[in-house]
């Protein structure tokens, strides 16, 4: 397989999402700072969302919203359905983004609380809390 052919097979949205997932996993596993772990989780979530979104993309189709751009006439439902991408991953990601935001806020609150209690912001100082 030639290099050009290999590059053309790469799905750019999924590839960039995969890179973000790997960066996030590395951040969670290798960084000791609690705040950096929270942000790395957020980066990983963004990557996961991009990967999920890319699985629903279909070349040459458009957003799953029924308007004059896809239907011509608004009653041609079957024809319009053949011009739309998969809506299920988009619905999943829509909910995942909001939950991700709330979870990041909660993580950061715990990090602030642990620091305020005098424990420091490195996960190394909480060795006793391991199971």
């Amino acid at each position: 397989m030639s290099l050009l052919e290999f590059v053309s097979r790469i799905n750019p949205v999924a590839a960039s999402g995969a890179v973000l997932v790997l960066v996030g996993v590395w951040g969670v596993l290798a960084r000791p700072n609690l705040f950096k772990i929270a942000i790395a989780t957020s980066v990983m979530e963004t990557g996961v969302n991009l990967v999920i979104l890319s699985t629903g993309y279909i070349r040459g189709r458009t957003a799953p919203i029924l308007d004059s751009a896809v239907a011509g006439t608004a009653t041609d439902a079957a024809g319009a359905a053949a011009r739309m991408t998969d809506p299920v991953p988009q619905a999943l990601v829509l909910t995942a983004i909001v939950i991700g935001l709330a979870v990041t806020a909660l993580q950061l609150s715990y990090a602030v609380r642990l620091r305020a209690a005098g424990g420091g912001s490195s996960i190394e100082s909480y060795g006793d809390e391991k199971w």
Binding site: R9, N11, S54, T55, R59, A78, D86
Partner: peptide, 28 residues
Amino acid sequence: GLAWALLPLALGSGVPEAPGALATAYLT
């Protein structure tokens, strides 16, 4: 290991020609 697992997705093999049966039902 995770990079290896994500490789098929990044290479576009996850991009389908048409939505699945469930998605098509939703669309219509």
